[in-house]
Structures are given as structure tokens and as C-alpha cells.
Amino acid sequence: MRTGTRRFVIAGLAVALLISILAPYLASPNPDGLESAAEKFEEAEGRDYLAFNSPLPDYTVPSLGETGVSGIVAIVIGTMVTFLVGFGLSKTIKSRP
């Protein structure tokens, strides 16, 4: 890896991990734009459900409860998984003829 690339990866991952650690404490718990809009409309009421049982629902580790640490563990896992999938997948795509 070139020096510049290595520097970007280290700095980028450091920022990503810092955000992952701070997000459970700093992120706004308010509903997002889509959820807020949905709250205004009767038509949307009670429609949403979970079609799939995710292991880390809502960015928490179920066995750790809804604590800050639980959020940190979940988001750090997600950040690392995304890095590895992003790297692994682009390598795989490139290596196929």
C-alpha cells in the first residue's frame, strides 16, 4: 500500500471508530425524517413490522441491553464488518475475469 493510501485508511478508520464510540451518546434519539412524517399519517399507523430477525436490532447487542456500551459494541462491529466486506468484495469483483 502506498504511504498516502495507508495514511488515508488509518485516519479514515480512526474517525469512523471515533464516531462509532460517540454515536450512542451524541446521536439524537428523535425519530428520523421518514419516521416523523409517518407519525403524521393514519395510513402509516401499525404498518411496519420486521420481516427478518437481525442479530443487532437498532444498533444494540440484545444481551447487553439498551446501554451505551451495547450501542458502541454494535456500531463498532458494523463499522468493521463494512470495511471488511467493502475490501473483500471489491477484491473479489476485480479478480473475476
Binding site: A27, P31, I75
Partner: peptide
């Protein structure tokens, strides 16, 4: 590719950071 993967990780993380906006709402 390492840059792409780093951007993906950073974008995953920043999507977990909802910022507050008026009207009791947030977004990322």
C-alpha cells in the same frame, strides 16, 4: 480498494450519528 472500504466504513458509522433538526426530528 482500501480507500473504497474506508469510505464505506466511515459512511456506515456516520449513518448511526443522527443530528437533531427542529420539530422533534433528526436525520443523518
Amino acid at each position: 480498494m482500501p480507500l473504497f472500504a474506508t469510505l464505506a466504513a466511515g459512511i456506515f458509522a456516520i449513518q448511526a450519528m443522527n443530528v437533531p433538526i427542529p420539530w422533534g426530528t433528526s436525520g443523518h
